[in-house]
Design a protein around this nucleic acid. Sequence first.
DNA 1: CGCGGGTTTGAGACGTGTCAACGCGTGTGG
DNA 2: CCACACGCGTTGACACGTCTCAAACCCGCG
Lengths: 246, 246
Amino acid sequence: MRGVLHPNLSPGDIWLRRLSDLMDLSDGARAAVREAVSAPRNYQPREHIVRDGLEDNAVRVLLSGFACRYKYLPDGSRQITAFIVPGEICDFAFLSDSSASQSVVTLTQSSVGTVDLDRLAGIVEQFPDVMTAILRCAAIEHGASIELLVSLGGRNALHRVSHLLCEMHFRLSQSGLVREDGSFDLPLTQAELGEALGLSTVHVNRTVQVLRRLGLATWRDKVVTLPDPQGMQALCSFDAGYLQSR
Amino acid sequence: MRGVLHPNLSPGDIWLRRLSDLMDLSDGARAAVREAVSAPRNYQPREHIVRDGLEDNAVRVLLSGFACRYKYLPDGSRQITAFIVPGEICDFAFLSDSSASQSVVTLTQSSVGTVDLDRLAGIVEQFPDVMTAILRCAAIEHGASIELLVSLGGRNALHRVSHLLCEMHFRLSQSGLVREDGSFDLPLTQAELGEALGLSTVHVNRTVQVLRRLGLATWRDKVVTLPDPQGMQALCSFDAGYLQSR
DNA sequence: CGCGGGTTTGAGACGTGTCAACGCGTGTGG
DNA sequence: CCACACGCGTTGACACGTCTCAAACCCGCG
C-alpha cells in the first residue's frame, strides 16, 4: 500500500526531516536515507525496543509514539534517563560498534523503523554529511542528558517539572506535534515523570498543581497546554540552544 | 629535549594508551596517533581549556592534571557535569563539527596536548579503527554522565559520594595513577565534589566523615585511600561496566 | 603575625519522601 | 446491568535528608 496511496510519503520521512534540520543534505543523500528505512514495526505500550547489553545490527528510529531510555537502581527503582519522541534514534551504541548500555521501552503504542547497519555504512561512505547529521543527533541527545543532569543536580521540583515541559514542547514542535493552541499530547503518567526527574509521584502531582494555579500549564487526560510559553520558559530559564545544532 | 632524553616517550603516549585499551590499533595507527599529538601546553589551576560556544580546530587531550566540564545555573551556582583525568579528551564537540556546549576548566596545574582536526581527519581516513576508538571514548564519556545522572536522581548522599570515589579509583587506575596501597591523588575541594554531586559543601563533609568512620575511605591532603575497595563498591553497588568498552 | 582557603561543627529551617487513604473512570466478569 | 478490581490522580499528616547560616579551626603563605 505504501507508495501506492501515498507515493510521496515514506516511513522514513520523519527521520529524514530531523536529519535535514541538523544538516543540509543533498538530494541524493535524502533519497538514500529515505529508502533505507524499513517498513515500520509496531510495538505495544511497555514493550522493549532495545535491551541493555544486546548488540544490534540496525539503527532503530522511533516513527510514532513515545518511548524512554532507563537504568535500574539497586533498590529496584527505575531512573529514566531520556524520553524519545518521533524522529529520534532509540540508541546510539551502533556508533561505537558496541552493545547497548541502557534499555529502551515504549510508553505508548509506537512504530519503529530500522536501518540496516551495513546499508548505513554504504550511505555514509557515499554521503559523509549523513554521518555528520547522525553525530549531531548524538550530540543533541547528549546535550539533553546533560541538561537533565543539571536539573537533578541544581533545580528544585518546580523548575525541574517546568523545564521538562518546556523541553517537550520544543522537541515535539520540531516534529510538528504541537497544536495551534500550544497544546500537545504527553502520554506519560506522573509516576513516569517522577522517575525521570528524581521526584516522588506525590510531589510531581503537587508541583503540577502549582503550575496549574500559576496559570502556566495544564495537564489533563494526557494533554499538556502551556497557555503562556514565554512565562513558562522564564520561570525555569529554559533556553532551547542545547536542542539545536549551531 | 623530548626524543633525546626519552627517545621512547612522547606526550601523546597517555592518550595512545587509552585509545589502545578501547580498540586494537595497528602499529601504523599507533605511530600516527603518537606523532599527531602536539607538544603539551601548560595551564594554571582554574584556567579554561574550552569555552562554551567557541569552535575549535583541534582535539584537546588532558595529559596531566585534573579538569572538569560544567554548566552554570541561573542562580549563579555551577553544576559540574564531568571530571576529566589524564588521557581523556576535553570536549567532543569536534565530532559533530559544532561548537562546545560546555566549558572545561582545570582544577589543578595541567598540561594539554592538541591534535589538529585536519590531521586527525587524515589519520582516521587511513586508519578507521582510530575513529572507532574515539567514538568509544565518547560513548564512555556519555555513559559516565548517565551514571552521574542516575546518582543525582536516585542515590542519597552517601551512595553518591562513594560511587564517585569508586569511579575515580577505577578511572585513575586505568591511567596508572593509583598507588600500590590503593591510594590516589584527588586534587578536588569538597566544595567541588558537591558541585558535581548536587550536595552542599557541608553535607559532603559530613558524608566523607561517615565513610571514614565506616573504615571505607580516608581523604586527607588531596589523597584518597580506599582500604577496602570491595566493601566500598558493595556499599554503592558500583559496577565499572559503564567505563569499559565491551 | 595575620590573612585566606579549605575543613569541621552545631542548630534550626525547609523541601521532598513516605505512608495511607480516597476518588474517579474504565474495563471485566458475574 | 451491576459489582468489583485496577490504574491513575489527589489529598493529608508526618518523618527525614539535606540545606543554610554562622562560627571555629587548621594550616600554609606572604
